[in-house]
């Protein structure tokens, strides 16, 4: 999918505004990065679901991605979304449990990027199947989506889009 930068930026802004104002989305940690900052011309949205959080081996698959984020100094470019399945009526306590697990995981990895909890399941639709990483490249006007595993080759390809060597 390829859009012009200004249109993409506007769409991203509208998307963020909707997210922040939506009643069923809470901000778990950190502060959402506004598109006006657009550091390095790139924003990443990491979408995960409860299965990733619950399974210790699954969430550890994100370790490589977090190392990549640290090495390339991308922490301020990341927004994470915990997408809950809208067809399941989750108990409040369970959602709190998931929130705690993500918090702990990020703390253990010394990460502080914001995590939004999508209680309405906006990011758990047919064409969006977490876990995945959505990359918005504002300089080149491109959106790219990659699924787990986020290996270095796939991630470097995303970095290569902007021509920025980290």
């Amino acid at each position: 999918m390829h859009l012009r930068v200004n249109t993409l930026g506007l769409n991203f802004l509208l998307f963020l505004v909707q997210i922040i104002q939506a009643e069923n989305i809470i901000i778990l940690a950190g502060t959402p990065t506004l598109p006006l900052e657009l550091r390095g011309g790139r924003e990443f949205i990491l979408v995960i679901n409860q299965e990733v959080v619950e399974c210790p081996l699954c969430i550890d698959k994100l370790d490589g991605f977090l190392r990549f984020v640290k090495i390339h100094n991308l922490e301020s470019n990341i927004l994470a979304i915990l997408a809950l399945d809208p067809s399941i009526n989750y108990e409040e306590k369970y959602i709190q449990y998931l929130e705690k697990q993500i918090k702990g995981y990020l703390m253990g990895n010394d990460m502080r990027f914001p995590v939004l909890v999508d209680r309405a399941g906006l990011f758990c639709q047919k064409n969006i199947t977490p876990p995945l990483l959505i990359s918005f490249n504002f300089l080149e006007g491109k959106v790219d989506v990659i699924k787990l595993p986020f290996n270095d080759e796939k991630l470097k390809r995303l970095i290569g889009f902007t021509g920025v060597e980290k």
């Binding site: 449990y97 705690k100 918090k103 702990g104």
Partner: peptide, 9 residues
């Protein structure tokens, strides 16, 4: 406890 950020797992 669930309401405190002391222990996670």
């Amino acid at each position: 406890g669930i309401e405190k950020d002391l222990l996670y797992q």
